[in-house]
Design a protein around this nucleic acid. Structure first.
Lengths: 249, 249
DNA sequence: GCAAAAGTGTTCGTTTTACACCCATGT
DNA sequence: ACATGGGTGTAAAACGAACACTTTTGC
């Protein structure tokens, strides 16, 4: 059985030097419909896809999401979706909120629970979901037309992400295993949308003792090679508990 | 129609010198069932109440909540519930998150969206909802047995409230229109569960310029009467936007 | 006059801010 | 040799923490 009035949508964030990106998909209607259990509750969902050309058009993109099965925890289902979209498990995943206005999906009432995920770029070679006609990263300031209220969901995801990175060390999930200090600064600058002073930023980081010098350096860069750092997982856990302050006025 | 797999539950917070309190209710099953529309979707809810003695026992208490009507915005519905419980409109109301584990309600699958509300004690003369057998304030550290996962929902509400008051001036919604500096300090102490230094606390408040001296004083207290303050609504709005910092290490 | 809470300043250590130059590497 | 980004310290201002006594009021 499927709870056809409840869905989960995932805002999957990535990061590279060009900025923050979101993974979006276009749905393969045939694949989706044939994946539904043959039950009355599926009929309504089939209908939904028939009624909404948006959902299967070549123009509109949507968050990766689906209707919640009756026999699965909400959080588990979000994890599963994330696995379908990316092939990854153990991803940082957090609930945004429920979106429940009447008019968010025309004709049918669907309440969606938004989640956001932070993806480490070491694992960008995504397994394509069979349900997706295509699956693609879009830069946050160069987004395509989106289905329904998915733009609002992304906006809220960003708000929560901002709140989170100011006081907890989670932003690091968007970085590869080894990274430079400049990368992490630019990550903060992009998320918080503020320029920061390099010297002061580094002093602050240093005081936290969160980073360990990996002993390695960037290779083949046309400038002085930067040191590569890693986290101290123990300090990370401690800061996740206690909080930190990257707030800037 | 009712979305019987989705409900809203409200954590209604109050505050007085004895601490934080939550408004809980015991359901009048007859009133509830007769309030449901005569439809198939209501049958399942009726059944729910029959199957769960918890819901109508004299021992267990529950958050004020109900199943979401298909033709109402989630936020609107939360407001309406709050009005049913308290007779108040224009209450500070914020979504907590969706609670969606399989086992939160036995036998049936219900995803609930939690909200929390902050009630100004000037308006404590509550209109009793006709759906409630009884409706009562409980001090947070003296709670009765609760239905389902309502204890977890309250816990999360507190977590969100804490996060919120540290960085936004919303805690003030728990105070009467005119209040003393000691009251607001004790509010912060209770919510954040930390003792604070009076002089430092007042300096911090003063710098924000959020408060206006109302010119009045406490009456008939067996000690020096404290000045009564009010908010500057303009500064309040500004701080709600920009944030503030009541974080203590 | 005494019990109870209100109200108020200073010092010291820490944190934040602002700011500019030399270094390493590839082409 | 030059272009590119990497890496570093200091001084001044703001902030946070610790701390004790006098005032007002009702009884």
């Amino acid at each position: 059985m499927i709870l056809n009035s409840v869905s989960v949508d995932c805002v999957i964030f990535g990061f590279d030097k060009s900025g923050l990106r979101v993974l979006l998909n276009q749905i393969d209607r045939e694949a989706l419909i044939s994946s539904l259990p043959r039950q009355a509750s599926s009929e309504q969902i089939k209908k939904l896809y028939e009624q909404h050309p948006m959902l299967t058009s070549e123009v509109y993109w949507s968050l990766f999401g689906s209707h919640v099965p009756e026999e699965q925890d909400l959080d588990e289902f979000a994890k599963e979706l994330l696995f379908q979209a990316t092939g990854l498990t153990n991803v940082f995943l957090q609930q945004i909120q429920a979106f429940g206005s009447m008019d968010r999906v025309p004709y049918t009432r669907v309440i969606t629970i938004g989640f956001y995920a932070l993806i480490n770029p070491d694992y960008y070679n995504l397994k394509q979901s069979s349900l997706a006609k295509s699956l693609q990263w879009f830069n946050l300031n160069d987004m395509p037309s989106l289905c329904f209220d998915h733009d609002k969901i992304i906006e809220q995801a960003l708000v929560k992400l901002r709140q989170e990175v100011m006081y907890h060390p989670v932003g690091f999930h968007l970085l590869p295993e080894k990274f430079t200090l400049t990368e992490i600064q630019s990550l903060y600058e992009v998320i918080l949308n503020k320029k920061m002073d390099t010297r002061n930023f580094r002093k602050k980081l240093a005081k936290m003792k969160l980073l360990i010098d990996s002993g390695k350096k960037q290779q083949k860069v046309a400038h002085r090679a930067a040191k590569l750092y890693q986290f101290d997982i123990l300090v990370y856990e401690k800061l996740k508990e206690e909080g930190l302050n990257f707030r800037i006025e």
